[in-house]
Computed example of a mutant assay.
Amino acid sequence: MTAKAARTARRMEKTAAAREPSPHVKQKQERRRGEILDAAAAVFSERGYFNATMKEIAERLGMQPASLYHYYPSKEAALEDMCRISAVEFCERLRGILAEGGPAAAMVRAGMLAHLTSERRAYVENFAFSRRNLPAGVVRELNTLARAYRQIWRKIFIHGAERGEWRSDLDIDVAADAVLALCNSAAVTLPRRKNAEEDAALKWVDLFLQGTQKRQS
């Protein structure tokens, strides 16, 4: 590299560094991005993904649409981000519950409550029912995350079977599918009720466990 080329490279590096936002600005941008995703998730849930518009999301936040596009160029980009974030978070949370050990019934209770009372409930609804509208490659990635989440649930039910906690005729795969179906369905209905708190979610949890646990003689 010639001396002139080296000087040019150094100038370019300095220019790039000068354009890099400060940690404070980055934090502010991430917070705003989260607020946008929360608003988008709520609008998608209320209006339906196809009917929702970026203008409605901006209005909910008191933003100009042009400012919104600075963070997300389309509602598709927002949907993709919220689906990926929620899928990763839910997998990590359930892995942590499994790693703690103990009775499987307690794991199911903790896992269901984490799912049903999460602040990301609207994200869950959109992941479950709207992700198919994303590009095929993104859908495949998200489906892989969905299978990973189901697999963790399956391990919990296997753990319970090994401990003799479940009914003798319980099908592990059916149980894993059932808990996901129940959680996704309840995630849609619970936020629309006035008492959408832990007590309401516990009724769903208890109903599920009554159908899976071995009856005490």
Score class of each variant (00 low, 15 high):
65 P>D: 01
97 I>L: 14
103 P>L: 14
99 A>P: 06
89 E>R: 15
72 Y>Q: 07
130 S>R: 13
79 L>A: 05
61 L>H: 12
143 N>G: 06
65 P>H: 05
114 A>H: 00
152 I>H: 03
152 I>G: 04
96 G>Q: 10
143 N>H: 04
79 L>N: 07
135 P>V: 05
137 G>Q: 03
103 P>F: 07
101 G>E: 02
148 A>W: 00
122 A>V: 01
57 I>G: 07
125 E>A: 13
144 T>I: 02
123 Y>K: 07
124 V>K: 13
142 L>K: 03
122 A>I: 00
106 A>D: 14
131 R>Q: 10
99 A>N: 10
102 G>F: 04
79 L>E: 02
132 R>Q: 13
65 P>V: 04
121 R>Y: 04
143 N>T: 05
60 R>P: 01
127 F>W: 07
97 I>P: 13
86 S>Y: 10
68 L>G: 09
86 S>N: 13
72 Y>R: 08
91 C>D: 11
147 R>P: 00
78 A>S: 14
103 P>M: 10
89 E>N: 13
62 G>S: 05
95 R>L: 12
134 L>M: 06
138 V>T: 15
111 G>D: 02
139 V>I: 04
123 Y>T: 01
121 R>E: 01
90 F>S: 15
149 Y>E: 10
140 R>Q: 13
75 K>Q: 03
130 S>F: 06
68 L>S: 05
145 L>D: 01
58 A>E: 03
87 A>T: 02
99 A>M: 04
140 R>G: 00
62 G>L: 09
117 T>Y: 09
88 V>Y: 05
114 A>G: 06
151 Q>D: 15
110 A>R: 15
140 R>V: 07
110 A>S: 14
